[in-house]
């Protein structure tokens, strides 16, 4: 095994991966991921594309996120979750929505096929708004928009006043019952800054969600945004949301 790791490992990964990713990988293998070098914050601007037409509601993202980020297991703490929309025939504005345990356990069939209804899944996560209402209201600067476009939390500085939770129009924040400070999706900042993708994107089997770097001209996100009808959640909130949805139905809140 060791020989194989040395022989195949080093050579083939360097062929497949970009330099940064390979360097990060080396560090993963050595068990010192925090030492991954060469990440320049100013060169990135992170966003996510979510393709509702591809989401199968398997819940992989929810489980992977909870595992990766140590999210509490109670059914009301989620950095990402999946909602199921059921839009009855002839009533496009009044959907029935559910998200049992945030989609962590998948979605047992609940609706009958062929009743004329429209049914689909909507994965949700922090929109990493460029004009975040949550950042605006934080009294001490414990949550902020990073130079590379990610809304992060400074857990050693947060008061736990919950004002940001109130200010988020999308319900993306919660108070971690273990630390009593706010918690939310970080776009897996510890991964994307080391050349890896987020835990949810890594485990999404259909590429329904993909992290993208808007400052990288070669990133496929540009092609996706150009060739699809894109919308954001609650555009009337004007938050500069960077979670871009393809196939977002008007009934989605």
């Amino acid at each position: 095994m060791t020989t194989r790791r040395e022989f195949v490992g080093k050579s083939s990964t360097f062929l497949v991966l970009s330099a940064a990713a390979a360097a990060a990988l080396d560090n993963v293998l050595e068990g010192t991921p925090e030492k991954a070098p060469g990440y320049k914050k100013a060169d990135h601007w992170w966003a996510m594309i979510i393709d509702i037409e591809k989401c199968i509601g398997c819940g992989n993202c929810v489980r992977a996120c909870k595992t990766e980020n140590g999210v509490s297991m109670e059914p009301y703490y989620f950095r990402t979750w999946v909602e199921r929309y059921h839009v009855p025939a002839g009533n496009p504005e009044h959907p029935q929505v559910d998200s049992p345990n945030g989609g962590y356990d998948g979605f047992p069939e609940k609706y009958k096929p062929g009743d004329g209804s429209k049914n689909f899944f909507v994965p949700k996560l922090c929109n990493h708004c460029a004009h975040s209402p949550c950042v605006q209201v934080c009294p001490v600067g414990a949550t902020f928009e990073s130079p590379d476009g990610v809304v992060l939390v400074d857990k050693s500085y947060c008061l736990g006043c919950r004002y940001c939770v109130q200010a988020c129009p999308y319900g993306c924040r919660y108070i971690d019952p273990k630390t009593h400070v706010v918690d939310k999706c970080s776009f897996c900042y510890h991964r994307i800054t080391k050349g890896l993708t987020t835990a949810c994107c890594e485990t999404c089997p259909t590429e329904a969600r993909q992290i993208g770097d808007l400052k990288n001209p070669a990133d496929p996100i540009h092609e996706f945004l150009r060739t699809h009808k894109i919308n954001v959640l609650k555009p009337q909130m004007a938050t500069g949301s960077k979670a871009y949805y393809n196939g977002l139905d008007g009934s989605v809140r």
């Binding site: 934080c138 009294p139 001490v140 008061l159 736990g160 006043c161 004002y163 630390t179």
Partner: peptide, 23 residues
Amino acid sequence: MHLGHPERSLQMYLTPHTSSAMA
């Protein structure tokens, strides 16, 4: 009494965020 970390409340005076109504 409501704060998750009452011992940090004085940070509101140390690093007040000018865009925050609470600060």
